[in-house]
Structure formats: C-alpha cells, structure tokens
Write a protein that binds this DNA or RNA. Structure first.
Length: 332
DNA sequence: CGACTTTGACCCGCGC
DNA sequence: GCGCGGGTCAAAGTCG
C-alpha cells in the first residue's frame, strides 16, 4: 500500500539530512537557491513562496490572459505539497494566512527544489479534450471470454496522439505529492537501470484524461520526477485530498490575504534579482497543457530571464538530462 | 461500500 | 520476426 501520498509536511524534511537545496535546475537553467536563502536568512519563507515567486514573477504577470485556459487556483497551501501544486499552476502562494496552516511556519523546512521542463510533440495540437480511444467496440466485446485480460484490442494503425507533457523534479521524500487533484494509480513499472519503480496515475475526474507519472531518480533518490500529461478538463477540486476547500472565491480563484500580498511584495523586491535562470534552446512547439502556460507567457514577457524548456520524450533521461542532474548535485 | 492500490498480464512501438 | 521496455488494463485486495 502506498501510504506516502497524503501530503503531510512531516514527510518532507530537508533540514538535516537534506540541507537546503542550493541549486535548482529549471528547464536546463540553474536557479541558485543558496543565494536566495542567504538573502532571506534561510528561514522557512520558502515554504510560503509560490513558484511564481521563485521566478520573480510579480502578480502583474498573472494577468487574466495568462489564465485564459488555466485551471482555477487552489486553496492556500498547507504543506509543501501544496506549494508543489501551486508551482504546477504557476500561481503565487498565499501562504501563512490561515491559522490551520501555521504548522508550515514551525517546521524548519526548506523548500522542495523543482526543475521544470515541458514538452509537446507533433501531435500535441489538439489535446484539449481527453483522448477517448475506445468506445462501442469494447462493449460489444464484453461478453467474450472474460478470463483473459486485455480483451479489448486497441485500434490498430491508430497512433494515439501523445499529450504534451510537463515534467519537473522535486526534492521530496514523498513519492506522490498532493497537487490538489485526485489521482488514481493505475500502474507501476520497474524502471530499467533504476531501483525505483515508476508509478502511473490518472486523474479521477470523469472525462479528464490527465495522467501523471512519478518516479525517483536513481542518481538521487530524494529527487522525484513528476511528469504530467494532458490538460485537466474540469475545475479544480473544491475539496482536494488532504486539503480544506477554503480560500476560493465564487469564481474559483483564491483571494490573497493582505498579509500575503505584503509579504510577496517584499520577497519579490529582494529576491527577484537573484534569479539566475539561464536560457537554453526552447524546442517546444506548443503549449496546450495547463501547466506550462505561465512558462510560455514568461518567455515572451521577460526575455531577460526566460525559462528554458525541453522536450520530454517520455523517458526520465530525456526529461532530466544527466547534465542537469549533475549540476544540481554539484551545487549541493 | 466506494475509492483506491497492487500486481501480473497484455498491448504496442521500436530497434536490431 | 523477435525481444525489450514502456504503458495500460483489470481483477483482487486494502482501507476508511
């Protein structure tokens, strides 16, 4: 049984064995967290920073246009798992605004280090609807011998187009980080050249075909590589797992507390100049997945520090180039 | 009892 | 064609 997925902060401890992450790769670039922490005093402000904060993206960048096709934002984060979720959604993190989440302030944790990459492929132009591969054919075959598995042969000569993928690395002891959506595990496979299996999850919402792969890197077992595939076709769950459905206004968007806004402004002023996100060649052709939207927007809006994007060919080594891993290690 | 995980089998694409 | 590896299915088991 997988008991790691619930998002308890207790499962995420980087204070001692895993000292503060000093470098985070971001799509091929390196985000020097050590410099950040030196400025910030090394406290747990990290836990209250959203990914947009880390990028130095102020709320001006989170214009409505940016979220035209975006998922509604989540409730305030209670754990780093929720920080993780907000990173996925490219949202500022309205941290430490609700008493229930005060534990986040008492845990001397450092943030997860995340490395993002995203990709698409030639067939990624129309992925707005979940792929419905099998329909009537299958029902007709239901009466057939049920002792055999896989009675429903997939349509031949019909390549199922791959959804664009969005992969990132997270330093976490928790395998399945709670990003707010509800996932059902539908498979697990041993990964070649890795002692850690790869888990396959699917969004449980009806009609939503978003998938998620979770695996650990064999080079650094503390790094979890999560790959999202597809786009959610539903609203953000009102009461996601392990979270409380608060902080959402009727439109589904969270309303930052004044305290949060103030905190964020301060942090941006201080930390934005420290971001060192190197630009590499972006080969991604389209971004129809939800998650990379902010990256794309970022690239156009802030040429001085654009996030780099890499293709995901479906394998870990493609998602996370070895060089990137080495760089991250050397910085630690 | 529903939701979810586990796990072995199966399907498919790809390289040889 | 064959073998390998990735991805998926679905029955059975587990949990709350």
């Amino acid at each position: 049984m997988e008991k790691k997925r619930a998002n308890p902060m207790a499962n995420l401890s980087f204070s001692d064995e895993h000292p503060a992450v000093t470098a985070t790769s971001f799509g091929g670039g390196i985000f020097d967290m050590a410099a950040y922490e030196g400025i910030s005093g090394g406290d747990n402000k990290w836990a209250s920073l959203g990914f947009m904060d880390l990028l130095g993206i102020s709320q001006e960048f989170i214009a409505p246009s940016l979220f035209d096709s975006f998922q509604p934002p989540p409730p305030p984060p209670s754990t780093s798992s929720e920080l993780h979720r907000q990173q996925l959604q490219g949202l500022p993190s309205p941290a430490s605004t609700v008493p229930e989440y005060s534990e986040i302030l008492t845990n001397p944790t450092t943030p997860n280090s995340s490395s993002f990459s995203s990709s698409s492929n030639e067939a990624a132009n129309d992925i707005h609807e979940p792929t419905k591969v099998e329909d009537n054919e299958e029902e007709e075959e239901e009466d057939q011998d049920k002792t055999k598995k896989r009675l429903k042969p997939k349509k031949k000569n019909q390549k199922r187009p791959r959804e664009p993928r969005f992969a990132f690395m997270t330093k976490s002891e928790v395998d399945h980080l709670d990003d707010g959506y509800r996932w059902r595990k539908y498979g697990q496979k041993a990964v070649k050249n890795s002692p850690f299996p790869r888990s396959y999850y699917r969004c449980t919402s009806a009609g939503c075909g978003v998938k998620k792969r979770v695996e650990r890197t064999y080079e650094d077992p503390t790094i979890v590589v999560t790959t999202y595939e597809g786009k959610h076709t539903h609203m953000y769950p009102a009461t996601p797992r392990g979270t409380i459905g608060i902080g959402l206004d009727p439109s589904g968007f969270s309303v930052p507390q004044p305290q949060y806004l103030h905190q964020q402004q301060q942090q941006q002023q201080v930390h934005s100049p420290l971001l060192n996100i190197c630009t590499t060649t972006a080969t991604t052709t389209s971004f129809n997945a939800s998650f990379p939207n902010f990256l794309q927007e970022r690239r156009f809006n802030t040429p001085s520090s654009s996030a780099s994007l890499i293709r995901d060919h479906g394998l870990l080594q493609d998602i996370v180039p070895t060089q990137m891993m080495k760089e991250a290690k050397e910085e630690q």
